[in-house]
């Protein structure tokens, strides 16, 4: 199957894979070490004893199990924020693609222009607004702003326009189906790969977000994993030496925080690999 002329290409590809896997490999190996192996072991890229389960046990029990609480917060924010964002964006994309309502082009131009607005520039004014409304340091301060994704709306509009034939919608209308029913029963099943893609993108964006929760939340029991691990890192770095056991927890905690999304991407690849085509084509 492989032709000799592809040897060079395959070697370059392998080199790239090694580069992209290097930190992940290091993380896997380091998660199995105790702090002795981590700091004075023989090689950073190879195993030295096997303490993964001990490390996991320490991770989940440290400081009354605050890691598990952060994990749950991340799931909550990414779940509610990400899925909420998907629902809002899919509805809007469908509305923009299928109906010529008055003012549509104007509104859509505004949405498209807002893709260029750097969202982090909005974090500080949003914080002040939330603070006036008494919502800072609550889960809503993280979840509500996560519902916004102009790019997801753009993606869903393009995807809807490309995946739903006019004839099908017309036929459903002639059969007397209402507009909501057409959306739910005719259009939505056809839009599935696009919906899964947008959902993955928005869940990833919320799960990985750092700036927004860092500014909005002040009590550590509301932190998501990203902010929590950042906090541990600061603690570990500020008491040099005394914090050695915390470095172990940071490493194994990083590993655990990466797994859910990696698994989601692996199990859903059939959908998103098709769905991502859309954004690039147009």
């Amino acid at each position: 199957m492989s032709k000799p002329r592809h040897v060079g290409a395959k070697l370059i590809l392998l080199a790239l894979v090694c580069y992209f896997l290097l930190p992940v490999w290091w993380l896997l190996v380091a998660s199995t070490k105790n702090s002795h192996g981590l700091f004075s072991g023989s090689g950073a890229l190879w195993f030295d004893g096997f303490h993964l389960f001990g490390n996991l046990g320490d991770l989940f029990t440290y400081n009354n199990g605050e890691y598990l609480r952060w994990l749950w917060n991340s799931v909550l924010y990414a779940g509610v924020g990400g899925i909420g964002c998907t629902i809002v964006s899919v509805l809007a994309g469908y509305g923009f693609a299928m109906y010529r309502f008055t003012g549509r082009n104007l509104v859509f131009a505004a949405v498209l222009g807002s893709v260029m607005v750097p969202l982090t520039a909005l974090v500080i004014p949003t914080f002040v607004m939330m603070s006036n409304a008494g919502l800072t340091d609550t889960i809503w301060a993280v979840i509500l702003p996560s519902l916004l994704s102009p790019f997801a709306v753009y993606l869903m509009r393009v995807y809807t326009a490309g995946s739903i034939p006019d004839e099908l919608v017309d036929a459903a209308r002639i059969d007397g189906a209402g507009e909501l029913r057409i959306f739910l029963q005719v259009a939505l099943p056809l839009m599935r790969p696009g919906v899964v893609t947008v959902m993955l993108l928005s869940v990833v964006a919320t799960w990985n977000n750092y700036f927004l929760p860092l500014t909005m939340l002040s009590s550590s029991k509301l932190y998501p994993l990203t902010v929590g691990i950042g906090l541990w890192e600061q603690l570990a770095a500020s008491n040099n030496g005394g914090g050695q056991s915390l470095w172990n927890l940071i490493i194994v905690g990083s590993l655990v925080s990466v797994l859910p999304l990696v698994l989601a991407f692996l199990t859903l690849q059939r959908y998103w690999q098709g769905g991502l085509t859309v954004g690039s084509l147009k």
Binding site: A92, Y99, L144
Partner: peptide, 22 residues
């Protein structure tokens, strides 16, 4: 075609609250 507004409405609320207003 005006039904389109209903589909777009939830997004518009989020858009106005968390983008335009800030």
């Amino acid at each position: 075609d005006q039904i389109g507004w209903l589909f777009v409405l939830p997004f518009l609320v989020v858009f106005l609250t968390f983008l335009v207003a800030p």
